[in-house]
């Protein structure tokens, strides 16, 4: 066991990790941030996606120790400061982009990264960008709509800021 520390959702935290402790285990068990889920053991489903140092990664496929000193954002860090839903989260609710909610945190985190890199994606780019996220409930239709509507909202906000 070693003590590792990182910034999670803007807060400095530390906890115990073995060499083989995965980031997702550290988040769920050590930090009790259970919004990040585990849906597979082959690094394919994306229920576990978080951001490490600003990039989306599968937290089931990164060791906690590798994030020592780094900065991590999880679904718990995506709401606005006043507790209301962030733009992408709100788009998911508006467009009915979730059903059972299990894949949802990973979807939101993947889309956040996608829109950062490509603020105006086409439908095909959105679908391609979600290649690492499996949803069994929605058929993706409304997830794609949520991504589109979030992109539009963010573009509007960016324009307004100019």
């Amino acid at each position: 066991m070693a003590t590792i520390s990182m910034t999670v959702n803007g807060k400095q935290v530390s906890g115990e990790a073995q060499g083989n402790t995965l980031l997702v285990e550290f988040l769920r068990q050590e930090l009790k941030l259970t919004g990040t889920h585990v849906g597979c053991d082959t690094s394919q489903c994306g229920a576990c996606v978080v951001h490490v140092n600003g990039e989306s990664v599968k937290s089931c496929s990164v060791f906690a120790s590798a994030c020592d000193g780094g900065s991590v954002t999880t679904i718990e860090g995506m709401a606005n400061d006043d507790g209301t839903l962030g733009v992408i989260q709100q788009a998911f609710q508006n467009e009915h982009g979730l059903q059972c909610g299990f894949c949802t945190p990973g979807m939101v985190m993947s889309i956040a990264d996608m829109l950062k890199n490509n603020p105006q994606p086409t439908e095909a780019e959105i679908r391609e960008g979600l290649k690492g996220n499996i949803c069994r409930c929605t058929g993706y239709h409304n997830i794609v709509k949520a991504a589109q509507s979030a992109a539009a909202t963010l573009a509007g906000a960016a324009q307004a800021a100019e």
Partner: peptide
């Protein structure tokens, strides 16, 4: 009507058995 349960799921506050 927008789903009321969405808020907790979208904030990572769903409560699944393994949680």
């Amino acid at each position: 009507m927008k789903r009321r349960e969405d808020t907790r799921f979208l904030k990572g506050k769903g409560r699944y058995t393994d949680d």
